[in-house]
Design a protein around this nucleic acid. Sequence first.
DNA 1: TTCATCCCTGTACGGCGTAGACAGATGTTA
DNA 2: TAACATCTGTCTACGCCGTACAGGGATGAA
Lengths: 252, 252
Amino acid sequence: MSSAPSLKRVIALLWRSQVSGEERRHPGPRPRLDVDRIVDEAVALADENPSAGVSMRALAGRLGVTPMTLYGYVPDKGTLLALMYDSIHAEMPRVVGEGISGVVDWVEEVVEVYLRHPWAIPVAYGRPILGPYEQEVFESLAVALRRRDLDAQTARGLVGTIFHLIRGTAHAISASRQAQEESGVDERAWWNEASTALAEVVPDFAERFPGTVWLVAESETDDGDHDYVARHSMTNLRTGVRLLLGGAAPGS
Amino acid sequence: MSSAPSLKRVIALLWRSQVSGEERRHPGPRPRLDVDRIVDEAVALADENPSAGVSMRALAGRLGVTPMTLYGYVPDKGTLLALMYDSIHAEMPRVVGEGISGVVDWVEEVVEVYLRHPWAIPVAYGRPILGPYEQEVFESLAVALRRRDLDAQTARGLVGTIFHLIRGTAHAISASRQAQEESGVDERAWWNEASTALAEVVPDFAERFPGTVWLVAESETDDGDHDYVARHSMTNLRTGVRLLLGGAAPGS
DNA sequence: TTCATCCCTGTACGGCGTAGACAGATGTTA
DNA sequence: TAACATCTGTCTACGCCGTACAGGGATGAA
């Protein structure tokens, strides 16, 4: 069950909407923390060890406070994640340059922000978070598409598709980096290990999967770059977005 | 640290490679379970309550066995998830029809399989699982692209991009359905609630985010379909894949 | 000075993945 | 048949997790 907090409460938190009561006029000790500090520290904590994520206990410890204290500021961990998620969107570029290239560049920058905060990627799925910063990012893409004279229906589909590509790309790159960091095995070494093991377990691989062999073998351009997954993924992303935007005619 | 099991062990498990010893020739009680049964039951369990996922304890209970028993068959939960993930790829269509439409139809069917097993979607990210069924699915797409005379480099990028779209679409639809089920609030009602709350908290929304308003308001075609998120997402997916494949010239 | 209010804490519950020691069943061998 | 090596499943326990609940102490208004 767990009963999520009311949507209104979450939205109010996201937009930091005070009820304009301004100054405190009531008894009781004044709070030692505030939402901004909690969120900032949570982001820092999550950034420092992306694999573990945040735990309420660890965050409280870092803030010099008992875990339960946090629940005075934030209704639950899900909401905290939403706040963290929205806050990193402040780092994303808002303005999109002219034309397709503008969008393509912007998309790449957005991915880079996600890569600085890999824990945020899974949060992005599902219903929109509806926070102010995510909203601004969304807005800037919407405006850019409107400038291209697309109809709203097409534009809306494009926005969704583009965000799928952004998140997918970011997810893939960050997973690769994380696996690399945890296992100490870099991408090339991992691939070697994997293909050796596969060859042993599935001796007739090449005959059973000729298409795969073709795809992988002939496109191998490692270049000795230890982060080539990121490079290739980014290139694919740019190509993909270019195709999507180029193909979506203003008339259609 | 948790130290993942050796890649070779995992691959051997995925391909159910026996060391060809065939019959048991050693003392000790014979196993009451086998990997297939565990995986099948785990998939069934996960399907039954997609929000909770599998826990080793719950799975053991369903198999009439102690949690620790499972570790005699599977090195850890991550590997179990990999096995489950690969197993559902057996349901996916292998053959891709001719031309772009063939791929587009196939993509849609793949999404539908993921939607029957929503827990599998997050597993898909990161390094490939390298199991036999996933491999076959991958292979069929690779072959279809080779038939279109793309060079391997382009094809490889396309495969990645298409899978991003598949997973993104599946993820979005399943998250929407799940939220709907958990909260009892359907998509339309949720949106009403959200926009009411937003209007209250951010009275100047329309002036601050005109692009968003344009995008959302003018493309609203609800039709009273309570699962319209799925319908729209699928349409966007088809459009996206069509644009990608249509734009990727054989020459390029 | 009284008192209502609110922040923070302590304790506790029920979950999780899984490490480690061990009991019992089993097939082979003497 | 008896001894033994081997393997399976169990029990217990550790250290995590999110968070419900009750209450202590500080605080400002009356």
